[in-house]
Amino acid sequence: MATAAARGTVGGRTHDAPDGAGDGAGDPLVGSAGHERAFDAAVAADERIEPRDWMPDAYRATLVRQIAQHAHSEIIGMQPEANWITRAPSLRRKAILMAKVQDEAGHGLYLYSAAETLGTSREELLDKLHSGRQKYSSIFNYPTLTWADVGAIGWLVDGAAITNQVPLCRCSYGPYARAMVRICKEESFHQRQGYELLLALSRGTPEQHAMAQDAVDRWWWPSLMMFGPPDDESQHSAQSMAWKIKRHSNDELRQRFVDICVPQAESLGLTLPDPDLRWNEERGHHDFGPIDWAEFRDVLKGNGPCNEERLSRRRRSHEEGAWVREAAAAHAAKHANGETGATRT
């Protein structure tokens, strides 16, 4: 928790804090009820929960699940875009795409670090990803079939991610909130680049324009699914909102995203593939057609177009890299004292 007052009340340390100093032994308030009251008060006062603060087990578990899933999405999300690095049509676009995929690896690293502050490890989380016990965003189970898909991912997928993630910059858990501040800055940049890529195509030759439209047609609905199930079916939402991990409901964020995208599509000169999409004066929002939740559930269950491919490729990279990680560990162990083994230049 951010303030000394909150820290004082709680004793400020959890049972698994590395040093156990400041343990509240002898403090009458430090029973679990006292901890819980202080935690609730800190959340209510919009204070940040920090790694050494006491937190409910379920809060910890929810955050580990959510941050891990977020990290995994960054890592798996490299694949659909990396698919086009070697085929990028100009050197400028190739540089932009390489930088973006590199940023995603960096985001994965921040997020695994944030998850590690909750008492897990990157190895453990990767193991859960590889064995299918933890998920990643369903969107990355769709294939990138043309160059325009790189633009559609930037505009729509990163756009949806930002709509989801900006409120997370105010999330109650400090390390996650701070990671999101850094990530959102870079994501906004990627989103503008994606929009600009689509704009170049849309204003290009008829073939390029058609390529852009086709990509938007294929990515629009999956992007709307990124906000998760409708509010009445979202099992974690109420608790996450009470803990201020989430600040808005899935449907609220989805609506916000649609309202942002409609004018952008118009200025791109592209249409969105939804015959029911129209402005509703009364609500002050766009109405839009029904989402195919059966498809969403199917993809989540592992039956999307690329689920198998994404996960096997991820596993293969990890397995094929095992000897490299072992070599690095063996080298570090040999040179643990003094001599680092690094060449001085």
Binding site: A82, T86, K94, M98, Q102, G106, Y112, H318, V324, R325
Partner: peptide, 21 residues
């Protein structure tokens, strides 16, 4: 660039892409 998404550790995803750039 062909290494993107295939590196043995995440840190090397960043490093190899950095050198490529």
């Amino acid at each position: 660039g062909e290494w993107a998404g295939n590196a043995p550790v995440l840190e090397e995803e960043v490093a190899l892409a950095n050198i490529a750039l």
